[in-house]
Simulated scan of single mutants.
Amino acid sequence: MTANESSAPAVDTVTVAYSVSGMSCGHCEKAVSEELSALPGVVSVAADAKAGRVSVTATAVLSDDAVRAAIDEAGYELTGRA
């Protein structure tokens, strides 16, 4: 194995940014991130309350309905893809 190879298989991912209304602080970011992270296939979530955006990296494109439900469960509103 060379220095550029890793023992983990490569996983193709896709990142989609969403606009979310109602987030205003770190607690908001954490709540949204936790709900989205629980969706199948999600690799990482980056929420930015100030910008009102959430970037979700997953192994496949998530359905907007699943993303909307997770954000709704956290107490916020998905306003669309950013």
Rank of each mutant, 00 (worst) to 15 (best):
A74F: 11
L78P: 03
A74Q: 08
G22Q: 06
K50V: 13
D64R: 14
V42F: 07
A47W: 04
H27V: 11
A69R: 13
E5M: 12
V54D: 03
V61T: 14
L78T: 03
E77T: 15
A47K: 02
I71L: 09
S6L: 11
L36K: 00
C28I: 08
V14R: 03
A46T: 13
N4M: 09
V16E: 04
T57H: 06
A8T: 14
S21V: 09
A17G: 09
A49W: 12
I71M: 08
K50E: 14
S37V: 03
S44T: 14
R68W: 05
M23D: 01
A66S: 15
T2D: 13
T13E: 03
D65R: 12
V20R: 01
A66P: 11
C25S: 04
E34I: 02
L62W: 02
V11N: 01
Y18D: 02
E77F: 06
D64T: 15
K50Q: 15
R68K: 14
A58C: 12
D48Q: 10
S6P: 01
K50R: 15
A38H: 00
A60M: 07
E29T: 11
T79Q: 08
V43D: 01
V45F: 05
S19T: 07
V43N: 01
G52C: 10
P9G: 09
L78I: 04
S24K: 13
Y76F: 15
S44Q: 12
G22A: 07
Y18N: 01
L62P: 00
H27Y: 07
